[in-house]
């Protein structure tokens, strides 16, 4: 999987951006590049990159997240340290953006610097099994809203179609087909399809550019 200096993951609330960002950072690290995960989520108070803080630290991946993430303070604050990644052009950065246009608004303040450097990929993460993005028209509305909010255009699509623990090969394949159509309609190329690691072998022959995900640890089973 190729990557540019900045990998920006945006999309609808609950499309899987955080899990993908964490795994993508691990991928970059495994290629020998220094990488920092930047949590720009101002929308979601629960289930944050902060949940993976220890794991990332053990792998030598830096995490910049709000000091208030996962605390009892609902402050949509962005840590000032994020500027250091935007400015330091020798370190890879993975940017986890909050859901929808509201989340993308936080990215907008860095847009001039990001566009000026022009060494980024802005990924649209889609899950066609989410209730508000089940058809193309809905997704295209979201694309426009997010691009308007952050002033950066998407460059690639990530297919992350899943229904959690119960995801099957068929669910991913159906999402992949829709993603191909979306790609044709929008002109945006598909970068990769992400799947839980347990489904990787089953799908690797069928879907190109398959990216295995290890999900954040949970204490509740289905």
């Amino acid at each position: 999987m190729n990557y540019k200096r900045l990998s920006i993951f945006a999309g609808l609330n609950g499309s899987g951006k955080t899990n993908i960002a964490v795994n993508f950072a691990k991928h970059i690290k495994s290629k020998g590049d220094e990488v920092t995960v930047c949590d720009l989520d101002i929308v979601n108070p629960y289930f944050r990159t902060k949940d993976s803080e220890n794991e990332l630290r053990d792998l030598g991946i830096n995490l910049i997240a709000s000091q208030f993430a996962n605390t009892n303070l609902d402050a949509p604050a962005i840590p000032k340290e994020i500027y250091s990644i935007i400015a330091a052009r020798d370190i890879c950065g993975v940017l986890d953006i909050g859901g929808d246009d509201r989340g993308a608004l936080a990215l907008g303040r860095y847009a001039p610097d990001i566009l000026d450097e022009n060494n980024y990929e802005m990924y649209l993460v889609v899950n066609f099994s989410r209730p508000l993005t089940r058809n193309f028209d809905d997704v295209i509305v979201v694309i426009n809203e997010i691009e308007d909010a952050c002033k950066i255009k998407f460059t690639k699509i990530v297919n992350n179609t899943n229904i959690g623990d119960e995801t099957t090969k068929e669910v991913v394949l159906s999402g992949y087909k829709k993603t191909c159509e979306l790609s044709e309609k929008t002109g945006l190329p598909i970068s990769f399809t992400s799947v839980e690691r347990r489904l990787f072998n089953e799908l690797n022959e069928i879907i190109p550019d398959l990216f295995p995900l290890d999900l954040q640890k949970r204490i509740i089973n289905s």
Binding site: G14, N127, S129, R130, P131, R134, I163, E166
Partner: peptide, 9 residues
């Protein structure tokens, strides 16, 4: 058909 939802949604 199953969809993936947050409890609130």
């Amino acid at each position: 058909e199953k969809v993936l939802m947050k409890g609130n949604e």
